[in-house]
Design a protein around this nucleic acid. Sequence first.
DNA 1: TCAATTACGCTACTGCAGTATCGTAAAAGG
DNA 2: CCTTTTACGATACTGCAGTAGCGTAATTGA
Lengths: 189, 189
Amino acid sequence: MAGRGRPRDTGVEGRVLAAAAAEIRQGGYDALSIDRVAERAGVAKTTLYRRWASKAELVVALITNLREEVPFEPTDDPRGDLTKLVATITANLAATPATLIADLAAAAAREPRVGESVRALWAERHRAVTAVVAKAQEAGLVLDHVSPAVLVDQLVGPLYYRLLVTGEPLTPDYARTLIRSVLGPEEPR
Amino acid sequence: MAGRGRPRDTGVEGRVLAAAAAEIRQGGYDALSIDRVAERAGVAKTTLYRRWASKAELVVALITNLREEVPFEPTDDPRGDLTKLVATITANLAATPATLIADLAAAAAREPRVGESVRALWAERHRAVTAVVAKAQEAGLVLDHVSPAVLVDQLVGPLYYRLLVTGEPLTPDYARTLIRSVLGPEEPR
DNA sequence: TCAATTACGCTACTGCAGTATCGTAAAAGG
DNA sequence: CCTTTTACGATACTGCAGTAGCGTAATTGA
């Protein structure tokens, strides 16, 4: 398995990601300078580019790395599940600087590889939301003519729309409003 | 009105915008280089920066300039109006390179002034959609508990979500699906 | 005519992402 | 031991956005 030549320094990746994390925490995407990260990690810039093809790919790797997957356990209350999921996504987005999301989206649009990575980041959550929506539909909470995939877009899309386009705040209340708009007002049991 | 010193060269703005338009048409936001635009317009780079504070502001001015306002005339068929509006927005977005939208969103997140300009660009359309949605609600096509503003987000947000996040295509069919999802299947008269 | 004021062009600069080149270090295989 | 192979560090470079400084052109007011 190990090739012929000099082996890769296994410490590089960790040191670079740590340095990058420290830099991006204070100042977002722009403030992260490849030169500074390399110096901070004690690594040559060229070595850094041997691991990640671009700044965007480094940032995606960084986020993938930081991200702790919170596995979602569906209960038998689809409405509650959906509310919780959307609230979590809203809170995560609200806690992330808009510039970071926007810059990643821009990089994703430019570089196909980054696009794939970003989509892979969201795939799991997207699946979770879709599953819960489908379950809600089975439970009769959603009209039959609605496609679950489209409904997911109509729940999550507005969050990005607010964050990236209108600039309106992402509040927990807005998340609840989105759910209500789709599922109707809550009925007392 | 005219100040004391040397008057501004009134031709600069037009020449720069024309040069910028020519550059951005082939290659998008990235390919637009301020240096090249300045040279092409026969204008010093510093003069260019005296008119627009950043590349993003120049691009916003460019788009504002190119944009021909298609005034929307509402009929007495809210569903038809809404379908038409969303279809138009979808077609416009689909025809615009994703990188341009994403880069503008990124610039808007970074520079407040650009954010205002971008939002001003969309304000008119946003108002038009909101008005039609409100009319649809009066006509009984939308349930009462739904807020028009939120419904607009749920119609337009998914378009940006697809364009910037999931990368899925923006087809006319998708626009129709969005409408159906919100207003229900079309009822034959 | 002359000073003040404002705009312009020009040159030079910083910091940035990304690339190319080259010498050298560390491993494997002969 | 020696060659091959791969990784690394260092330096230097390009093109970019944006800024600073300066000399000069064009206008107004005295």
